[in-house]
């Protein structure tokens, strides 16, 4: 695989901003750890999203000022957060009833691999010496109405993350609806990956070259 050396494509912040534009007003949203957390910085003007963090808070607010954190007010990434007006605390069985019971509108997750049929791998490389850790990812993809993945298009080594079939252990089967990468926005459809939008300055052929499965062009 060729190395990605040139700097093309959206930055992580631009990816998050692009994703945030597609979230309807009033949505209940769970943001995964890493790039997904950036989405909270880009709520479009005039919209309110209510953030769920699976450790037991609905109405999660931004990080507190440096040094003002409460060790008993954290998010799923174990970072200090705040609670907005109208927030609620609850225990884990209720939190996962919200997730598994289909009450949340959107889950935004990172990925190691996404297959053209929507399979997601994002919890383990499956290596023998790795310490397996899964957290709530399998519950989120099984229960939340829509699953968006936000990820670099390729790994640091230049390997495509969008593939025909995942080689890593799965988090869920056929669960991904849409992918926001640094190069494009791509839907998972019954016919495979379909480009919804290309990053300005990036052409279809470049994205195809860096994708491990056939891409369908945007529908006019």
């Amino acid at each position: 695989m060729k190395q990605q050396t040139e700097t093309i494509g959206w930055t992580r912040e631009e990816m998050a901003q692009r994703l945030a534009q597609d979230i309807p007003n009033g949505s209940y949203v769970n943001l995964g750890i890493g790039i997904p957390e950036l989405v909270a910085r880009f709520v479009p003007e005039g919209r309110t999203f209510i953030y769920h963090t699976e450790n037991g808070l609905l109405g999660m607010g931004p990080s507190p000022a440096e040094g003002a954190g409460d060790p008993e007010l954290i998010n799923a990434g174990k970072r200090h957060v705040t609670a907005n007006l109208g927030a609620a605390y609850f225990h884990h069985a209720d939190s996962f009833a919200m997730i598994r019971g289909g009450h949340l509108d959107l889950s935004v997750l990172g990925a190691m691999q996404i297959a053209q049929n929507g399979d997601l791998a994002n919890w383990s490389t499956g290596k023998a010496d790795a310490i397996p850790a899964v957290g709530g990812a399998m519950d989120l993809v099984a229960g939340v109405k829509q699953v968006f993945v936000i990820t670099q298009h390729c790994t640091k080594a230049g390997e495509p993350k969008l593939v025909e079939a995942c080689s890593y252990p799965l988090t869920g089967q056929g669960v991904v609806d849409r992918i926001y990468s640094d190069l494009a926005v791509i839907d998972v459809t019954p016919d495979g990956f379909r480009v919804v939008a290309l990053c300005p300055g990036v052409d279809f052929e470049t994205v195809q070259e860096r994708t491990g499965a056939p891409l369908l062009p945007a529908q006019k």
Binding site: E54, F96, R100, G136, A137, M138, D139, A142
Partner: peptide, 25 residues
Amino acid sequence: PQGTLAERIRAGGAGVPAFYTPTAV
């Protein structure tokens, strides 16, 4: 999985010996 762990504990405390879940299929 975290939600399965929570539900297994909830069930254990509620006198429910087992349940079906879509998580991890």
